[in-house]
Structures are given as structure tokens and as C-alpha cells.
């Protein structure tokens, strides 16, 4: 078993500085409720010359229901590739990815699209809001390919993220922080089981970062969605109870600064 599972700690604050830390053996975690489970995941790119360039080699990773995990690592360590695999945007060379009991590595592309729309929320580093749609439409578009548009819920999400008076605004009329919150609302709109966030604070002022992360964690917890947040920012990672280091997770240690394909 990898050491990462052992670092799985649960914190419970009781209004004091005192923290109760419960250590759980990995077998128990996986037996209880493992939402996400990766086994022997390998990803490599083949060059036109036929040469294979290995990117990822992850023997094991598990995330429990509603668990919030920070994944840290330098750029080129394969973080984004891992997220793409989890989101079903890319397929692994070998290995299994089970999310909520479904093996997404074995799904067809339309099945993965459908699965992504119904089980996953994705917050991109540069938010990737659609510029010609309003904040509300951006959230609704995500719903339209998933469980169906629900203007009430979309409005409620945006309202709870402090954007009640910005529903009709286009992304470029919004501040970076507001855009980040629209992206969060969109990720949560389909009531996902897990939210994947790729450097979600990368474009924010240092002052806003903590607030943004706090909000994201609260909302995920509220919707009982697990959170896997990728960041190389120590200030962001520091708040997470469970931090997984890419360097420890990925046995493929060669750092490739090459193309991310």
C-alpha cells in the first residue's frame, strides 16, 4: 500500500485549537466507501517515431465519499493528465479508474461524456467560461448536457456564491473572482459526486485565494461532493487535511516539460 492512504486523516474542530486526528488504515477506507479508486494506472504517449514516453504510473489512489484531497506537484508532473483521465477526457494506456462503481477506463466515448455530465464537476485553471453566454447561461449549458436545465437551482447556486446581481453578465464583465465562482457553480450544477479542480486559484489575487478555496470546500461539502484539487501553491494546499504529492503518487518520475497533448 502506498503511504498516501496512510496520510488520510480526518480533522474535527471543536471550536478550539485542539484537533482530534483519526488515522484510518487504507483497507478500511477502501472497504468503507471509496468513491474513486485507481489501480495500476499507466499513461504514455507514443511519438511518431514509435517511441513511448511514459507520463503516469500510479499503482493506487483512493478517495472516499465526500473526501477533500489536495494533489500537489510541479508543472509537468502529470497532474493535468491525471485529471483528464479522471474526467474521461483522455483514456489511460492501461489500468482501471472506478468512480462511484463505474469503470470509466472501460467506457466508450459517448458513455464517458454522459458520465462526465452526470457524475463530475470540473473547475479549470482559466475557468473556461464561454464568453458569449451570461453567467447563468454558462451554468445552464453544463446542465443541458447532463440532467437537464434547472434555472431555479442554477440561480440558487449563483446566488449562494454572491452572484445574484450578476446572473446576466457575460464573463468579461465579471472580475476574476466572480468568474471563478461562476466556474464553481457550473461544476456543482449537475450535483456531481466529485469535483475536480485544476489550479482553480491560479488566476486569483493572493488575497482572494483563501476565500475562494474556502467557498469551494464548503459548497462541495454541502452537496456531498468529493473534491480533488490540484495545486502547486503551498498556501492553498496547507488547508487540506489530506494532501497527496504527485511525486509520491506517480512512479513515473521523469518530468516532461514537453507537450501536454
Amino acid at each position: 500500500m502506498s503511504s498516501t492512504a496512510w496520510s488520510n486523516r480526518r480533522e474535527a474542530g471543536f471550536g478550539s485549537d485542539e484537533k482530534i486526528v483519526i488515522l484510518t488504515p487504507p483497507e478500511v477506507v477502501s472497504f468503507l466507501m471509496s468513491l474513486l479508486k485507481i489501480q495500476d494506472l499507466k499513461l504514455s504517449y507514443s511519438l511518431p517515431s514509435g517511441e513511448e514516453i511514459p507520463i503516469l504510473d500510479i499503482p493506487d489512489l483512493q478517495i472516499g465519499e465526500g473526501e477533500q484531497v489536495a494533489l500537489s506537484g510541479e508543472s509537468g508532473s502529470g497532474k493535468t493528465s491525471l485529471l483528464n483521465l479522471l474526467a474521461g477526457i483522455q483514456t489511460p494506456t492501461s489500468g482501471a479508474i472506478r468512480i462511484d462503481g463505474n469503470d470509466i477506463a472501460g467506457m466508450s466515448e459517448p458513455e464517458r461524456d454522459r458520465f462526465r455530465a452526470t457524475h463530475l464537476g470540473y473547475v479549470f485553471q482559466s475557468f473556461q467560461l464561454l464568453p458569449s453566454y451570461s453567467a447563468l447561461e454558462n451554468v445552464l449549458l453544463g446542465m443541458m448536457f447532463g440532467p437537464g436545465p434547472d434555472v431555479g437551482f442554477a440561480t440558487e447556486l449563483l446566488t449562494r456564491l454572491g452572484l445574484a446581481d450578476r446572473l446576466g453578465f457575460r464573463p468579461k464583465q465579471l472580475s476574476m473572482g466572480q468568474r471563478q465562482r461562476v466556474a464553481l457553480a457550473r461544476a456543482l450544477a449537475n450535483r456531481p459526486r466529485i469535483v475536480l479542480a485544476d489550479e482553480p486559484t491560479g488566476n486569483l489575487d493572493p488575497g482572494h485565494k483563501q476565500d475562494a478555496i474556502k467557498l469551494m470546500r464548503e459548497r462541495c461539502e454541502e452537496q456531498k461532493a468529493a473534491l480533488l484539487l490540484v495545486s502547486h501553491d503551498p498556501a492553498v494546499i496547507a488547508r487540506f487535511e489530506r494532501v497527496v504529492k504527485m511525486s509520491e503518487l506517480n512512479r513515473q518520475q521523469t518530468v516532461h516539460h514537453s507537450r501536454e497533448v
Partner: peptide, 16 residues
């Protein structure tokens, strides 16, 4: 293309 990629990431299928 960017819009299409985002929509795909949101779960839109190619055929959609």
C-alpha cells in the same frame, strides 16, 4: 473550437 472543447468537457457528446 474553444467553445466546443468546453462543451465537450461539460459532457456534450461529439454528435451533439
Amino acid at each position: 473550437r474553444h467553445e466546443f472543447a468546453v462543451l465537450r468537457a461539460l459532457g456534450a457528446r461529439r454528435r451533439s
